[in-house]
């Protein structure tokens, strides 16, 4: 290329810098940047460009169509409730694992990661069986007219399953580092157990719990494998956004799939940003 007589424009400068940097750097850098470019930057750009070919009006119309809105409701509301539920029980489990001794503790502690390691299709399969009307757990609640599998409740159970390790594993290390001295001090100074918990234990834990809930929420929002099997995937009932994308693709409606995909991706990015902010907040305590 002929050397340009103009100074590089500000928006070209970053690219130039990246190029200069890459040509001067060692090969691990080139592998890292090259792989990230091919695997992440290129696909994300392709999706955004595909969406940007659509007039904003049409994009908005598809993104807020009644069926899309109902899938957002099922996906995000259910994921939020599940994540918050796990915020409560995950913290309780972390507390129990850190503070108390009981038989088989090591195995129980290790098993918390099982939802993380178990392939999602297996999770969906077994949850659909266990929570169906004649399953081990489902048959207990069926006489009360409660159906779990193949309803929105089933989606919630699948989301509870997959987001549980995130809360426990974020809260546990913070609890481990917390000295029980402070609690004893609070108690000696006359605080009730409830006051001790509320004013002494909870504040330093709160950033970790929020981070765990956000991580769990993020995972639950994107989940596909377990939820698609445990739900009936009926529109306006228990159809989640990832399944809608899948159905659009099956109908060769690439535009429709892309629009919902962009909405989901943007929300994932916002959650990722939130998690980073929460983690920075948590570091202030340590």
């Amino acid at each position: 290329m002929a050397p340009s007589t103009h100074p590089p424009t500000p928006e070209r400068l970053p690219f130039l810098k990246v190029w200069q940097f890459l040509s001067a750097s060692s090969w691990p850098w080139r592998v890292t940047i090259g792989y990230l470019f091919m695997m992440l930057v290129l696909p994300v750009t392709a999706m955004f460009l595909k969406a940007s070919q659509l007039p904003l009006n049409d994009f908005w119309k598809i993104a807020t169509s009644p069926i899309a809105l109902s899938t957002y409701d099922v996906t995000f509301t259910t994921a939020l409730i599940s994540a918050l539920f796990n915020g409560l029980f995950g913290t309780l489990i972390a507390w129990t694992l850190v503070r108390y001794d009981f038989p088989l503790k090591r195995i129980i502690e290790a098993s918390v990661d099982l939802p993380f390691a178990l392939p999602t299709s297996v999770a969906g399969l077994t949850l659909a069986t266990v929570y169906s009307d004649n399953g081990w757990v489902g048959s207990f609640v069926a006489p009360f007219g409660i159906k779990i599998a193949f309803t929105r409740l089933g989606v919630a159970i699948a989301m509870l399953f997959i987001s549980l390790p995130f809360v426990v594993r974020t809260v546990q290390p913070v609890l481990q580092e917390m000295e029980s001295d402070i609690e004893e001090a609070a108690w000696c100074l006359g605080a009730s157990p409830w006051q001790t918990f509320w004013h002494v234990v909870l504040p330093p834990l709160f950033p970790a719990i929020s981070t765990g809930v956000a991580l769990g929420f993020s995972r639950a929002v994107g989940e596909y494998g377990s939820t698609v099997i445990v739900a009936s995937n009926t529109p306006f009932k228990d159809l989640i956004a990832p399944v809608l994308i899948f159905q659009r693709l099956e109908q060769y409606d690439y535009v429709g799939a892309t629009v919902i995909g962009v909405v989901l991706l943007m929300i994932s990015l916002v959650i990722l940003l939130t998690i980073n902010v929460l983690q920075a907040w948590g570091r202030r305590y340590s």
Binding site: L36, P43, M47, V221, G222, Y224, V243, I245, L269
Partner: peptide, 26 residues
């Protein structure tokens, strides 16, 4: 954070992006 993206992106969206890149009309 960019490195963590594959954990945040829904697997279905990941698949969709690949279709938009390498699919017949990609």
């Amino acid at each position: 954070s960019v490195l963590d993206l594959p954990f945040s992106i829904s697997p279905v969206v990941a698949g969709l992006m690949l279709v938009l890149l390498y699919g017949r009309n990609g």
